[in-house]
């Protein structure tokens, strides 16, 4: 096997554990938030169906913005896995 010292091993192991926790906790907020957006969009479309396309567009933009923190978590997790 390759020879890595104990210290190097601890650092890499901490990075991997951190990657897992980062993605796990980071997915918590966006999931709830996007669900809330979509739920309210359902309500809006039911109440005023003539504005359906407008509401759908707003929903998609809002979800894309809430998604960004999830994508930050993904990027950080990938960095922690591959570049330490």
């Amino acid at each position: 096997m390759d020879n890595i010292t104990l210290a190097q091993g601890i650092v890499k192991a901490a990075a991997l554990l951190g990657a897992g926790m980062c993605m796990g906790m980071g997915a918590l907020g966006p999931g709830v938030g996007e669900g809330f957006v979509a739920g309210k969009a359902c309500e809006g479309i039911a109440r005023s169906p003539e504005n359906a396309s407008l509401i759908t567009r707003t929903m998609l933009v809002g979800q894309a913005v809430s998604e960004s923190t999830g994508i930050y978590s993904l990027v950080i997790a990938l960095l922690l896995i591959f570049s330490t």
Partner: peptide, 22 residues
């Protein structure tokens, strides 16, 4: 080596935490 064991072990636990909280 012990370092390699640590890496792999904590990677498994991290995978469980990632999908669990995610």
């Amino acid at each position: 080596s012990i370092g390699r064991i640590l890496i792999k072990t904590l990677a498994f636990i991290g995978a469980g935490l990632a999908i669990g909280f995610g």
